[in-house]
């Protein structure tokens, strides 16, 4: 990657103004402003990095065109079902994560996403959530597109994984995504985030997706507790996987297996119980044995 494509940024005043206007609109049941109008209306709060890259209106246009097209495939502009929305999330995340020019630090900035959500793709946000959900317009981990971008980038298993490439992205529930990606201590380490995602997928297969919410909450807390004393990212991939498995096993203690499970999962359980057994007597000595 060479030259960074500079994307306009919308500062906080602009976001506030935009949200105020949206609130007004909603009450009056009137139309959203069109793109040109939004651009001029909030012009005063849109800014760009002064130097260091190339301004790229083309990239902004492309993001708009593509995401509107993806949304269109999932029902936009007619009101969408939860299933359609989830489908949009996955498809949009794939697209955002695979775009070469979006592997750029510009997209780690909240104000960049605020610009995209408030100005460029406002109608998609309103469609996907509502004009009232401010956090989906402002930049941050809950931003409509920012959260998809980081999910896609982190959970992308790479082209080498072929049809498995988006396995994690497609499998995780929204709640699991939130548990991972709204915890900066996890989200900032892609290998850790992927290991936890895999742990979720394995456990969900064992006990059923429907029962995962509490288990996931407890597992991420246990892992963060552990990460406070042991650098989990320093472990080899196998050891990290074992560690995550062990934590999921512990978090799901006492929860019955899914009855319709196929045999393969059984091994995981046994392994988890074994590692627990090893661990129990005295502080994880066995795990560090490499």
């Amino acid at each position: 990657m060479s030259n960074v494509r500079l994307i306009p940024r919308l500062n906080d005043v602009g976001v506030t103004r935009c949200l105020d206007d949206l609130d007004q609109l909603d009450e009056e049941h009137s139309e959203l402003m069109d793109l040109e109008r939004r651009r001029s209306e909030y012009e005063a709060w849109i800014w760009c990095a002064a130097s260091g890259g190339s301004l790229s209106p083309e990239l902004v246009d492309e993001i708009r065109v593509q995401l509107i097209a993806i949304a269109g495939q999932h029902g936009f502009p007619t009101p969408a079902s939860d299933r359609q929305k989830a489908g949009f999330d996955v498809a949009a995340a794939k697209w955002l994560a695979s775009h070469q020019q979006m592997h750029s630090p510009e997209f780690l900035r909240d104000d960049t996403w605020a610009f995209l959500s408030c100005i460029v793709l406002q109608e998609i946000v309103v469609w996907r959530y509502s004009a009232r959900q401010h956090g989906r317009f402002a930049g941050g981990v809950r931003n409509t597109f920012q959260r998809l971008w980081i999910r896609g980038r982190t959970l992308d298993l790479g082209e080498a994984a072929r049809e498995e490439r988006w396995h994690l992205l497609e499998s995780l529930s929204e709640d699991a995504m939130v548990q991972i990606f709204e915890r900066a201590s996890i989200a900032s380490h892609p290998q850790l985030a992927r290991a936890i995602a895999q742990g979720w997928v394995d456990t969900a297969e064992r006990i059923g997706r429907g029962r995962m919410e509490d288990i996931m909450r407890r597992a991420t807390k246990l892992l963060r507790l552990r990460n406070q004393i042991v650098d989990l990212t320093f472990l080899s991939p196998e050891n990290l996987r074992e560690e995550v498995e062990r934590v999921f096993a512990r978090s799901s203690e006492g929860i019955a297996e899914r009855e319709d499970r196929v045999g393969s999962g059984q091994k995981t359980t046994v392994a988890s119980w074994i590692s627990r057994a090893i661990r129990r007597p005295k502080n994880v000595a066995a795990l560090s044995g490499q």
């Binding site: 201590s185 246990l222 963060r224």
Partner: peptide, 18 residues
Amino acid sequence: HLVVDGSFASADDLPDDI
């Protein structure tokens, strides 16, 4: 108190031995 991510964390919904 327990420490998670460098700051305070409650022991709520954690296994009893912690």
